[in-house]
């Protein structure tokens, strides 16, 4: 026993170093698995305030670009207005049942706007911080889209802030489809460039061309269908596989995001409960 104590006393510094290393590594690898770690909720709140201060200054330098992207989005929405579509057949008219649209049971997706207070693109694991948290209705696993295209999904929520796993994160995986063939594949990031993501699992039987549009699908629980993901920039040749590897230019410019929309799927819980109970029944 005495020798054990002597050993500990003699190598105390080294043992202390080892303990700290183990603590650090366990933080790191546990966080990667479950998106959670000690004090992260508290620290999100604290670091969020720092980021907000910084953003207050930085925001002014981006005003022009923000304005431009908002104007473009407005333009796109205005073009969808009913007045722009004139029906040649004046006898039959499309009548919207407004009751259904307003009713809470029919509306599926609710959008909440949020200001981005921090954003990185240079790491392998990129996150955004937004100034809207649990108190304002944000929950983990909500989709996040920008004015031009999808941005990522919420992973962690504190009282007034939320962190979003950006599409530029090596663990980001999401289902997406090609616009013209409706073929679905998986979007992921290879860590190379913040301008491009990779679309995989599209079979080679489908015709694919440069410039094809990639959209979200209704198969995803967190995004509504037909949101912009990006356009195909390059078809990477790979003869050994029967699936394409497609380089997709993201629609969102991650360099200058100022505002995003958090998408709340009001029926997500119901769908999840049904799917889970089905899985239980089979087992």
């Amino acid at each position: 026993m005495r020798n054990v104590f002597l050993f500990i006393r003699r190598h105390f510094n080294f043992l202390f170093f080892l303990v700290l290393q183990i603590v650090a590594l366990s933080f790191l690898f546990r966080f990667n698995k479950f998106h959670e770690a000690v004090f992260l909720n508290v620290s999100t709140e604290v670091t969020g305030h720092f980021y907000e201060r910084y953003n207050n200054i930085e925001y002014y330098f981006q005003l022009k670009k923000t304005n431009e992207s908002l104007v473009q989005e407005n333009l796109r929405l205005r073009q969808l207005l009913k007045e722009n579509f004139e029906a040649p057949d004046s006898i039959r008219r499309l009548i919207h049942d407004t009751l259904k649209v307003d009713s809470h049971t029919v509306i599926k997706y609710m959008l909440m706007e949020a200001k981005v207070v921090n954003n990185t693109t240079t790491q392998q694991a990129n996150y955004l911080t937004i100034h809207r948290g649990f108190d304002q209705g944000v929950r983990p696993n909500m989709g996040v889209t920008g004015p031009q295209g999808i941005v990522g999904s919420v992973v962690n929520v504190s009282k007034n802030f939320a962190t979003i796993q950006s599409m530029l994160h090596y663990q980001f995986r999401h289902v997406a489809k090609l616009k013209h063939s409706n073929e679905t594949g998986t979007i992921e990031w290879d860590g190379m460039s913040p301008l491009y993501v990779t679309l995989k699992n599209i079979p080679k039987s489908v015709r694919v061309e440069k410039g094809d549009t990639v959209l979200t699908t209704q198969l995803s629980r967190i995004f509504p269908a037909n949101l912009m993901v990006g356009t195909i920039a390059e078809i990477i040749p790979d003869n050994s596989s029967s699936f394409y590897t497609l380089k997709v230019r993201t629609a969102t410019n991650f360099g200058n995001i100022e505002y995003v929309y958090v998408i709340d799927n009001l029926q997500a819980d119901e769908q999840k409960m049904l799917e889970d109970s089905t899985r239980k029944k089979i087992q």
Partner: peptide, 13 residues
């Protein structure tokens, strides 16, 4: 620093 980059343990190690 890790709490700013959301990678707890990486820079700490």
């Amino acid at each position: 620093l890790d709490y700013f980059t959301k990678t707890p343990g990486l820079h700490a190690a």
